[in-house]
Simulated scan of single mutants.
Amino acid sequence: MKLLKLEFFKCRRRKILLVCAAVLAAELLWFGMYLTRQDAEDLIQGWMLLFYNLALIDAIILPISVATISSRNCELEHKGASLKLLETMVTPGRLYGAKLAWGALVLAALLIVRTGAFAVMGVAADFHGAIPWGRFAIFTAISWAVSMMVYALQQGLSLRFQNQAVALVAGIFGSFVGTMSMLFPPALVRCVPWGYYGLLSLVRMEWDPATRFTQFFWQWPQPMDLALLCLWAAVFLLVGRALFVRKEV
Rank of each mutant, 00 (worst) to 15 (best):
M48E: 14
D42C: 09
T211L: 09
P193M: 06
V66F: 02
E27K: 14
G129E: 08
K2M: 08
F176K: 07
K10S: 03
A145Y: 07
A108K: 08
A137E: 11
A210R: 12
L183E: 11
D208C: 00
P92F: 02
V203W: 01
L86W: 06
L105S: 10
L85N: 06
S143T: 14
F161R: 09
P186K: 13
W194S: 15
D126R: 14
L105Y: 06
C74D: 03
L238E: 07
A124E: 09
L50D: 04
Q38M: 14
L43P: 06
V235L: 11
W218A: 02
V113M: 08
L3T: 15
V120N: 03
Q38E: 09
R241H: 09
L24M: 13
Y52S: 10
V189L: 05
L243A: 13
F127Y: 11
V120K: 12
L24E: 14
N163A: 07
Q222R: 12
A210S: 06
G80H: 07
R190T: 06
K10I: 05
Q38T: 14
W207I: 13
S71G: 07
L168T: 12
L231D: 01
T179W: 11
G122E: 04
L226K: 10
D58F: 13
C20R: 11
Q155T: 15
C20N: 13
L153Y: 03
Q164C: 01
L43W: 05
A59I: 01
F244W: 03
L200Y: 08
V23S: 12
A234F: 08
W133H: 09
G195A: 03
R12C: 07
R204D: 02
R204G: 04
A101F: 07
V19P: 01
W30Q: 12
A137F: 14
T211G: 03
A119M: 12
K15A: 09
M121L: 15
K99F: 00
R114C: 07
Y196N: 04
V66K: 00
L54F: 03
E77T: 02
A227M: 09
G171K: 10
P186F: 08
L28D: 10
A167L: 00
C11N: 15
R94Q: 13
Q162H: 12
L159W: 00
A242S: 15
W218F: 03
P221Q: 06
G198R: 08
W133Q: 06
L231E: 06
G116D: 06
T36C: 04
A167Y: 08
G129H: 08
V23T: 14
S70L: 04
L54Q: 10
A117N: 08
I60H: 09
W207G: 01
L24R: 13
V239I: 15
Q164A: 00
F136H: 11
V192Q: 01
A145Q: 10
L111K: 13
L168R: 13
D126G: 10
F118E: 11
L86I: 11
M121C: 05
P221V: 05
L100E: 09
A119W: 02
S181G: 02
Q154D: 02
T179F: 12
C191H: 12
P209R: 07
F244D: 01
L200G: 08
R14I: 06
P132D: 08
A170P: 08
I57P: 00
K10Q: 05
E206L: 01
M89N: 12
W102A: 13
Y196G: 01
V120S: 11
Y34A: 05
M121Q: 08
L18K: 02
E87P: 00
